[in-house]
């Protein structure tokens, strides 16, 4: 099939960017979206134009590196990561608009690449269990009831892609934050630091310049790992509890 692509190009963080239009031919429906961009880049390279920069690594939907705004939807029309989106979801003659994640806390580095270091700094602010290597008790010393283990797991499937932020009209990272609070908060191992974790992470969330959540729910709809909205409820509850204790 033949496609028209409108792509955000921006040489670096300091320079203003703009949308550019390209045509690609011979796109097969078995290609992944990123392979389609590889084809475009090969074409640009041949023509002496610099290829479009975009991030990807695993191309299996698990590393969270990829992530594009495709026709106004984070990761495109399917509930999956950009790398797992296939060209079957489009048809011949389509025009596809491709933009980077937009958020103050995710500055554009170049073209479609953004800096998501703010997520790492939120984890630094408390998204861990403080246990030194070698200091752990036997793994079977604390049984974890299965429902808790399962909910912790569901929340832990977050891949840190940032689609929740990209899709949220407020550019809030509450889903990402709620996922980590729920993951560690559901497990006995996470209890000791439960209060300090939520206080630290919420403070950092705001410091990074993310917006506040107003419970719109776009984030959960865009999340490729289908992290449910109730993790935000859990986050709010944990913060309330922590503030009472603080």
């Amino acid at each position: 099939m033949r496609l028209t692509l409108k792509i955000w190009r921006q040489p670096d963080a300091a320079t203003k960017g703009s949308m550019h239009t390209y045509e690609v031919d011979d796109v097969s429906e078995d290609m992944s979206f990123l392979e389609m961009l590889d084809v475009l880049n090969e074409q640009l390279n041949t023509n002496g134009e610099e290829p479009v920069a975009f991030d990807s690594d695993c191309r299996e939907g698990i590393c969270g590196m990829c992530g594009l705004m495709i026709n106004g939807k984070a990761h495109g029309p399917e509930v999956t990561t950009t790398c797992q989106l296939h060209m079957r979801s489009f048809k011949d003659g389509d025009t596809i608009t491709i933009e980077p994640w937009r958020a103050e806390a995710f500055p554009v580095i170049k073209d479609l690449c953004v800096d998501r270091g703010s997520f790492d700094r939120m984890i630094q602010a408390g998204g861990y269990v403080s246990v030194n290597t070698g200091a752990a008790p036997d793994a079977h010393s604390t049984p974890v009831p299965k429902p808790h283990a399962d909910r912790a797991f569901d929340a832990a499937t977050c891949i840190g892609c940032g689609a929740c932020v990209a899709a949220c009209p407020n550019a809030s990272a509450s889903l990402f934050l709620g996922a980590k609070i729920t993951h560690l908060g559901e497990l006995p191992q996470g209890q000791a630091e439960r209060d300090t974790r939520v206080l630290g992470m919420v403070a950092q969330h705001d410091e990074e310049g993310f917006g506040g959540c107003t419970n719109i729910g776009e984030c959960a709809a865009a999340c490729p790992k289908e992290i449910p909205l109730d993790v935000i409820s859990q986050l709010n509850k944990d913060l309330r509890t922590a503030l009472r204790h603080a």
């Binding site: 269990v129 070698g134 793994a139 079977h140 049984p143 009831p145 797991f153 832990a156 191992q189 996470g190």
Partner: peptide
């Protein structure tokens, strides 16, 4: 064996049985 202990203590959500054990 130490690896599993370490990871569980960190909060790695390994699959569990109904009794709550790994």
């Amino acid at each position: 064996a130490n690896i599993i202990d370490q990871c569980v203590a960190q909060g790695v959500p390994f699959a569990r049985e109904y009794g709550g054990l790994l």
